[in-house]
Amino acid sequence: MALVKDNPKVITSSKTSSSMATEKPEPKRPLIRVADFDFYYGEKQALFDINMDMKENEVTAFIGPSGCGKSTLLRCINRMNDLVEVARIGRGKIEVNGADIYDPRVDTIELRKRVGMVFQKSNPFPKSIYENVIYGLRIQGINKKSVLDEAVERCLKGAALWDEVRDRLDTSGLSLSGGQQQRLCIARALAVEPDILLMDEPCSALDPVATAKVEELIHSLKKEYTIVIVTHNMQQAARVSDKTAFFYLGKLIEMAKTDEIFMSPKNEQTEAYISGRFG
């Protein structure tokens, strides 16, 4: 199951990492490291020289105006950009737990099991709630009923959805409300026990009540997962994140603790964006 077959630096599973964290609270180490990263769509450069670290069990928010490259960077972290025909890296690398994810020997399937993703628009499969949650396990060939039952309960509880749907696990995932669907997608992502959760504007299609629930969820998930969230909503970034990164025109303008960036941004552009003068 090694990410890189002959690389000793194997990404550990979430269980061991969390237990390690409780045993010896060592200083948080960077789990995702982006170094000198350039990225292109065809001839058009989308990301310029990005350098950043995202630490274990922290929530990092990406903010910035539309088209600034924040979603692009997010999708680079689990290589979803591979689906785009013309996408390519110019320079630099991204490391996840010490492994260079763009190494040609990397199997994207192994990577994506460890780096889960929640999308902007909730996209449960047209299957039952139960089957939605365990999809990731089924594709790994796990069919044992007791294991699956346990996973469904654990993940739905983890996604704060269990109490709402426990009586109707056989109904279609599409029958849920928008907010519930999004939490179902989070539960689905949790089932494969990733270490990292990438969230691409997970609340943009939700009403304020549903948004509050998802934000609450992000808070509680932080204990076990490292979360990167892209958001257009500045208040949301302020509420949920530990660190905030501001992007503009494909460049990382400023990254700091969330409090600092909202209270006393160092960069003029950041300040202009946060205070609503453009964007």
Partner: peptide, 24 residues
Amino acid sequence: SFKEASLAMGATRLQTTMRIIVPT
């Protein structure tokens, strides 16, 4: 989005096709 979701969970192309695309 179905395809993306499936691939993001670590499914192979074949699994995505047979378990998501074709049934849907």
